[in-house]
Amino acid sequence: MRFIDRDEVARRLTYEKCIPIVREAMIAFSRGETLQHLRSIIPLAEGRLFGIMPGAMASDGPFGAKLISIFAGNAAKGRPSHQGLVVLFDPETGAPVCLVDAGEITAIRTAAASAVATDALARPDAGDLAILGTGEQAVSHIRAIATVRRLRSISIWGRRIEQATALAAEMNTELGIPAVAAAEVPDAVARADIICTVSSAAEPILKGAWVRPGTHLNLVGSSHAGPVEVDNDLVVRSRFIADGREGVLAQGAEFLRARAAGLIADTHIVGEIGEVLAGTIPGRQSAEQITAYKSLGHVVQDLASAWALYAGD
Score class of each variant (00 low, 15 high):
Arg6Gly: 00
Ala10Trp: 03
Ala10Ile: 09
Ala10His: 12
Leu13Val: 05
Glu16Pro: 02
Cys18Trp: 00
Ile27Tyr: 02
Phe29Lys: 14
Gly32Thr: 05
Leu35Ile: 15
Gln36Ile: 04
Pro43Trp: 08
Leu44Lys: 07
Phe50Leu: 12
Gly51His: 09
Met57Gln: 09
Ser59Asp: 13
Gly61Asn: 02
Ser69Val: 08
Phe71Leu: 10
Arg79Tyr: 12
Ser81Glu: 14
Val87Asp: 01
Pro91Cys: 08
Val97Pro: 00
Cys98Val: 01
Arg109Phe: 08
Ala113Arg: 01
Thr118Ala: 14
Ala122Met: 12
Pro124Asn: 10
Asp125Glu: 14
Gly135Asn: 05
Ala138Leu: 11
Arg143Gln: 13
Thr165Cys: 11
Ala166Cys: 08
Asn172Glu: 15
Thr173Tyr: 09
Gly176Arg: 12
Pro178Trp: 11
Ala182Gly: 09
Ala183Glu: 15
Val185Asp: 11
Asp187Cys: 08
Val198Phe: 06
Ile205Ala: 02
Thr215Lys: 04
Asn218Thr: 10
Val220Asp: 01
Val220Ile: 14
Gly221Thr: 11
Ser223Ala: 14
Gly226Tyr: 06
Asp231Trp: 00
Asn232Arg: 10
Asp233Met: 10
Val236Thr: 10
Arg239Phe: 12
Phe240Asp: 09
Asp243Val: 06
Asp243Asn: 06
Gly247Ile: 03
Gln251Met: 12
Leu256Val: 06
Arg259Trp: 03
Leu263Cys: 00
Leu263Ser: 05
Thr267Pro: 04
His268Phe: 02
Ile273Arg: 01
Val276Gln: 02
Ala278His: 11
Thr280Lys: 07
Pro282Gly: 12
Gly283Ile: 08
Gln285Ala: 14
Ser286Gly: 13
Ile290His: 06
Ala292Ile: 12
Asp302Arg: 01
Tyr310Val: 11
